[in-house]
Structure formats: C-alpha cells, structure tokens
Amino acid sequence: MRKVNFKNRSWNISGNLHLPDNFDKTQLYPAIVCVHPGSSVKEQTAGLYAEKLAQRGFLALAHDASFQGGSGGEPRYLEDPATRVEDIRCAVDYLTTLDFVDKNRIGLLGICAGGGYAANAAMTERRIKAVATVVGTNASRAFRELNFLDTLEAVSAQRTAEANGAEPMITNWTPNSAEEAMQAGINEFDMLEAINYYRTPRGEFPTSNNKLLFTSMANLITFDAFHLAEFLLTQPLLVIVGDKVGAFGSYRDGFDLYNKAASSSKKIHIVKGASHYDLYDKRKATAEALEKLVPFFQENLF
C-alpha cells in the first residue's frame, strides 16, 4: 500500500493506494475507487474492500472525504454531498495520471452513504466504466424521514448564531457507546451495530472521531443521491444488500437504486443473514460480497 495525496480544489485529499501482489509498474492495471461511508475513513471498511480487491489483481484507491480524516478542507467535519461526489471525480483524475493505470478501465465501489455518492458520481463521470454498491444508502432519504423541517429550522438558527460570533456546533454521528444510546432511549438495531463497529476496537480508527458539523444537515437533507439515475446511470451496476433489515434503510435503497438505474446490465445480490454492518467487516458476509464484486469488475474492467 502507498500513501498518496491528490487535490480537490485547493486542498489535499489523503488516500491509500492498494497495489496488486507482484505489482509491476511497467504493466497496465484496472483501478477501482473505494468510497467510505459517512463518519468513516479510508482505513475502515473502504480500506478492507480495497485491500481484498488488490489481492485479486486490481489497483484500488481508498480516500478520506474532504474536511474529514487525513484530508484537508475547511470547515472541519463538514459532510457535503456535492463535495463528496467531487472527491470521487478528483480520485479518478488522480488515477489517470498514473502510468500503470489503464485509463479506460476504472471502476467505482461505494459502501453505505459512499454507495449513494458513488452512484451519483457515476451518472456524470463517464470515465467510470462500472459501479458497485455494498449496503449503499441514499442519505437524503434517511434524513428526510426524520423531523426534517425542525432540523432545518435548527440549522438556520445555528447559522445565524455562528454568523454573529458563536462557535460552530459539532455533534456526533452516533452515541459514543451502547450505554449512552440506551440512556438516551435509543435501541434501534442498525444504530447499535454502528456503535459496535465505529466506537469499539472492532472497527474504530483515531481519525474516525464521530464528529459532524451540525449545519451539514441542510446539505444532507436536500441531496438525493439517486436523482436522474433512470436517465444517467447507464454503466454496469452491481448492488449488494443484506437481508437483516434495520432503520438505516440500505435494503430498501438498494432496490430503489437497482430499479431506477438505466443500466442495461445490472444485478442485485442479497447476502442472506447479513446486517448492514456485517457487510462492513464480518468475514463471511464480506467474503460473499467479494465473490460477486470480483467477477463483476473482472467482467467489466478486464
């Protein structure tokens, strides 16, 4: 693995470039951009899939989102969907500068919210020849099912406060522990599994610090990752979901994307007995996902 940097506008994006075994810089390789979930960083589930894909002959790039992790950009902890999509375009830009990347064989894989961003990027980024999602979510749909008008009122009030000298409001993506969640009356399956992944030794990483700029919520609520997919998402598509359904909605969103996509070649695969977070790192679930991802990318990138 090589640590790399590339630009989005004026700041650096931090990436890990996973190289195939017996890498030969004189050869041309197919490449896959791996996009992490919201609140995540490149060393977590996106990095796991990137590493496994590299072991199967692909060059795989996982990167931190702008404003987060090891990447630059201000304000910190901003989750801006449009910039997340631009990060993907910039990752493709970077790959095209590498002499050992075949510029005509670039694919895209997104996990959770990264799946929604990946699908959205592929609609306008024609250099992407195949796109896959693992428990991909349309984050706007999830947030719009909450008290979104109340949230937008609160965001507006917070922007006024910050314009008049208040400190930016930083909130958490999840409670910091299962105990904290229970004390707050939160016992939903997906949320508890998110805490178990992100806030315990199972998946935690120092730069994945559970911080979200509160005013990001306006961007998240209004961004529809699948808008115009029925016209613009034409590349080969693979959607992978688990059938243990929780409130985050990746099962429903997976079928929504599959049904909407204009792709003439599209598949959906259900991993039986797997939850949203099983498909982040659990050996059995991720192995089954990779059994579908590898031949999909081989078929469309080799």
Rank of each mutant, 00 (worst) to 15 (best):
T26P: 10
Q27T: 01
Q27H: 13
L28S: 13
Y29E: 14
Y29F: 05
Y29L: 05
P30D: 00
P30V: 13
I32A: 00
C34R: 11
V35E: 01
H36K: 05
G38E: 02
G38M: 11
V41A: 04
K42N: 12
E43V: 14
E43H: 10
E43T: 11
T45N: 11
A46D: 12
G47F: 04
G47H: 15
Y49H: 15
A50T: 00
E51N: 07
K52S: 10
L53F: 03
A54Y: 07
Q55P: 03
G57K: 14
L61E: 01
L61D: 10
L61F: 14
H63P: 00
D64Q: 03
D64L: 01
A65P: 03
F67A: 04
G70S: 08
G70W: 03
S71N: 02
S71F: 07
G73S: 13
G73Y: 01
P75N: 05
P75D: 04
Y77H: 09
Y77V: 13
L78N: 04
E79L: 01
D80E: 09
P81I: 01
A82P: 09
T83G: 13
R84Y: 05
V85W: 10
E86D: 08
D87W: 09
R89P: 12
R89T: 08
C90L: 15
C90A: 12
V92A: 13
L95D: 11
L95G: 09
T96Y: 06
T97P: 11
T97Y: 10
L98T: 07
F100T: 02
D102G: 08
D102T: 10
D102M: 12
D102Q: 07
K103H: 06
N104D: 04
I106R: 15
I106H: 07
G107I: 15
L108V: 05
L108N: 11
L108F: 07
L109W: 12
L109G: 06
L109Y: 04
